[in-house]
Design a protein around this nucleic acid. Sequence first.
RNA 1: GACCCCUUCGUCUAGAGGUUAGGACACCACUCUUUCAAGGUGGAGACACGGGUUCGAUUCCCGUAGGGGUCACCA
Length: 483
Amino acid sequence: MGEMGVVTRFAPSPTGMLHLGGARTALFNWLYARHHGGSFRLRLEDTDRKRSTPEAIAAITDGLSWLGLEWDGEIVRQSERRERHVAVARGLLAAGRAYRCYCTPEELEAMRADARAAGRTALYDGRWRERDPAEAPSGIDPVIRFRAPQEGETAIDDLVQGPVRIGNGALDDMVLLRADGTPTYMLSVVVDDHDMGITHAIRGDDHLTNAFRQTQLFLALSWQPPFYAHIPLIHGADGAKLSKRHGAVAIGAYDELGILPEAMRNALLRLGWSHGDDEIIDTDQAIAWFDLDAVGRGAARFDMEKLKSLNGHYIRASADSALLAAIEPRLAVAYPLAATDEGRRRIVTLLPEAKTRAKTLVELADRLAFLVYERPLAMAPKAARLLGEEGGEARARLARLAGALRPLAAWDEEALESAVRAFAEREGVGLGKIAQPLRAALTGAEASPGIFAVMAALGREETVARVNAVAIIAAERKAEAEG
RNA sequence: GACCCCUUCGUCUAGAGGUUAGGACACCACUCUUUCAAGGUGGAGACACGGGUUCGAUUCCCGUAGGGGUCACCA
């Protein structure tokens, strides 16, 4: 309910992948828009055509879709709005709020080198600001620079950072139009934010100083700047800004790891934002609670372990059908049986048990894989140890157990449990003495979901067959050796 | 270097001028138990430092240190 008219935007440059930082920026914009009943726009800042690729665009839209952050309206591609940007720059030029600068790149470089050597900030010194264009050297295409205010200061009332101000002397006359006539990012952002009616620009705080420059431009254009909210960056394990070299991983990698989008949203939300002691916050709750005033100002590091813990929670809360759909393809790659009715039946039967044990879909699939193995099962070393040697007591007992189980009237968890317990009593051993070798025989591993659930999922035929595969053969070999 | 921002357990964080400084993940122990998990119970673990202001500061102010960000005809 809320004030209509809130318009946020996620405005990445499609030059690489969508990583955690970008994903969180998108999430915050999306949440803020949804919370206020406004709209969330997607804009591609592709003014640097050389570096913008279709692959990168797909990476962004795929990433957002996976995260469940639907944008409203059409995607705006900045490169397609070039004429408008140029027109605005020309207007500024005509109004005397911009001017032509004929410096060569070499000249600018020398200027900066001098400034650095003198211990000054390497700002453009405005050498063409008041110079007569008649003095323009021939053969040089000029850039158009903004005639920025040199006195006073520029202030923004940032929704996260609070009031921040900077002396105008710390800013220089930025380039609006390049020598080839194309608009720069700084111009495009201002024009597009205005034209799109963006009310709130929520972005990483690496843009904080840009906000001052952009505010100056808005003022020069007599436009109303949006509210700014600069959220702290997510840092890598080394404490530095996430970048391609510093652990920036594409959001899609988390999908491959078996992370659920809702867990990712929850994790990202809790990075720099909190609501008292609440940790598990689903998306509806997040929309209801989210606001900018609870966003912290310190950079946070991403913790994979916490994500996995959250993911485990959301896996446990997921419907079995959804989990089946997610893991079946993963399993079917190696085990075709997973994609059959029988395979699916086994998986679905065991899912309620198995999902309490997995922190990722990959783990879940791994723990369920034994259900769709072909016989004979490969035994893990520890599992083989549980079985003991061929002809040994453990295997002999398993052979007797198979005989006891085969004629069971009902084949469900409850019936199986009482049958096995009764068998253990008859044998005069603890349940563990039966359950562990049985687990090895049925799963090939020493750890698995509850053994009765495993048997129920495998079904009578497969259970008996797997037990006999390790027990009968061994017994026969022993008989052979003795006879 | 200049400008700007930040600093509570290992990590993410709550918190208020007076609290046993709370929670979560991770860690340890116990419990449950057919294994492994999950669950339950308990434990260890933090206010960067120095000055102020104040009856009292971790909280407010100023410094210091440390960390981060920005200084392109990239975005």
